[in-house]
Design a protein around this nucleic acid. Structure first.
Lengths: 141, 141
DNA sequence: AACGTAAATGCGATCCATTCGCACCTGTCA
DNA sequence: TGACAGGTGCGAATGGATCGCATTTACGTT
């Protein structure tokens, strides 16, 4: 399930969820965030649109949306979880160990490989949780 | 860096770490654990060998050993981190969503692919954090 | 358009995995 | 064997995330 344009209201309905102003605010913030914010950051940004939203609701809504498949949770290490709208094209993530920046990696090929390996063991994949920590290679010092 | 047999004492020395009875106890427990235990579970098992070890030391030692590359931390979701001796052959993990069991997946090919993708973007991989949640396929219902 | 109900929310309290502060111990190397 | 950096135990603290509960709200039904 993917959200594009302003159809996230419809996406909420299809997921059997009530369309509340808090959810709409959160989703629209998430749509325009390309930096994989965490709950606290999302909370601050959402307050800019609607100062009635509580942090508890941000957490609850993110979990609800994750369960509905509208949102993806990134559990990196030693930092609060980050979130993104479920992307149309699946991708893994690369975390720059020096800057903390998160970069999206194309991963159709990896997914195929993962599926094959899992299938060989008699499993079907439910969800993928994969990232690498990496360092930019210095080309000319 | 990998630990085999009883050479973990030497491995500690090589890492510039003091060889304390707590560390030896923890490493030997970890060597004989194939089920990816978490800190609490490791604590209980280590107490069986040496009841002077504290939970704080288990956490500190695991972090120290991880930093030294002797131990690998698995951050699964919604549960405390699990640990394993750094395996000789790199592998990803599969978590059975029904049983919680952790299965090791061969992943040389995946690692090659990951390296290629990262290299193409000018990065060298520092560490890999990858697991899939999966469900056993029913063959005959 | 008002109603009834289940679902959502805000607030503050709470949980719990992990880390910290600090006084005391112990490897290690001279 | 003595000095000292590094390691440890204990209990307190931290901090991300969740919960309990009273109140509000969305939305299908009159």
């Amino acid at each position: 399930m993917t959200v594009e344009g302003k159809e996230f209201i419809q996406a909420l309905r299809e997921a059997g969820l009530k369309v509340t102003q808090q959810r709409v605010a959160l989703l629209s913030i998430l749509m325009e965030s390309t930096d994989h914010p965490n709950a606290e950051e999302i909370y601050v940004r959402v307050r800019g649109l609607d100062d009635s939203v509580s942090l508890a609701t941000v957490y609850r809504t993110l979990s609800t949306l994750e369960e509905a498949g509208l949102v993806q949770r990134l559990n990196l290490e030693n930092e609060p979880a980050r979130f993104e709208i479920t992307p149309a094209a699946a991708h893994d993530h690369l975390v720059d160990v020096d800057t903390g920046q998160v970069i999206e990696l194309p991963s159709e090929e990896m997914n195929r490989l993962r599926n094959d390996i899992a299938a060989k063991l008699g499993y079907e994949i439910v969800s993928i949780h994969s990232f690498v920590r990496a360092r930019k290679i210095k080309t000319s010092p």
